[in-house]
Amino acid sequence: MVRPIATDDAPAAVGAYSQATTNEELVFTAGQIPANPDGEVLADTPIADQTERALDNVQAVLAAEGLEMSDVLKTTVLLDDIENFEAMNEVYATYFDENPPARSAFEAAALPKGVGVEIEAIAANE
C-alpha cells in the first residue's frame, strides 16, 4: 500500500504528485527545489544557497515521517549547469557527513521555476 507524506515545513506539491510517498519500508521524496515552505523560489541565489534550501526541504519531508538524513539510501541531484557541481557538493557533504548515501548527479537542460538544483531522495523507513 502506498501512502503519501506531506508537511507544511516544505513547499507544497503544486501538481499531480506528493511531497513524498512510502510503502512503510522505503520513502521516496519528490524532487525538492530551492523554495521556502511558503513557495517563494530562490532561483536567483548562489548555487550553495539553493542546495542548502533544497536539502532543508528534503530533510523536512523526511522528518514528517520521523526520518533523518542518515536514513537516506540514495539521492539524485539535478543541476542546470554541471560546472556548479563543486559548490553544490560542498554544501551537500555537510548534510551527509557520515556514511553518505549513493548518489547520481546530472546536468539537466532546464529545471522547474528556473532554479539551479533539484534533489530527490530514497530513505529507509525502519
Rank of each mutant, 00 (worst) to 15 (best):
E98I: 02
A110P: 02
A102K: 14
E68K: 05
Q32M: 13
A43G: 13
D9M: 13
Q19A: 08
R103I: 04
M88A: 09
L55E: 11
A6P: 01
E65C: 10
E68M: 00
F85I: 00
V2G: 08
V58P: 15
I119A: 05
N125H: 13
E118C: 14
I33F: 05
F28M: 10
V115R: 03
S104N: 15
E107L: 12
L55V: 06
R53K: 13
I119P: 06
A110K: 07
V61S: 08
D8E: 10
N57K: 04
A12C: 07
L42H: 14
R3K: 15
I5Q: 07
E65N: 15
E118S: 14
A64S: 15
L78M: 11
A124T: 00
I47D: 09
D80E: 02
N89H: 08
A63Y: 01
T29R: 02
A124M: 03
G66F: 06
L62V: 10
R53Q: 13
E52D: 13
V2I: 15
E24W: 02
A35K: 02
E90Y: 01
P11M: 09
E83R: 11
N57L: 05
T29I: 03
F85H: 06
D38F: 01
D80Q: 02
A20N: 07
I82S: 06
D8K: 10
D80T: 12
A123Y: 01
D9V: 01
A102V: 11
I5M: 04
Y95P: 09
E25M: 00
A64K: 08
A48G: 15
V14P: 05
P100F: 01
T7V: 05
N99I: 00
A10K: 07
E118M: 07
T22Q: 09
E126A: 12
L42C: 08
Y17C: 11
I47P: 14
V72W: 00
M69L: 15
L73K: 10
I33Y: 06
A54W: 02
R103E: 10
A93T: 04
D97Y: 04
I5W: 04
A123E: 06
K113F: 12
D56V: 05
N125P: 01
K74E: 13
I82P: 03
A123N: 05
D49T: 11
I33A: 05
I122F: 01
K113V: 04
E118R: 02
T94D: 13
P4D: 09
D44L: 04
E24Q: 08
R3Q: 15
A123T: 01
N99R: 04
M88R: 02
A43N: 13
L111I: 08
G15D: 15
E86H: 02
N89A: 12
G15F: 07
A20E: 06
A87R: 02
D8T: 11
D38L: 00
A43P: 10
G116I: 04
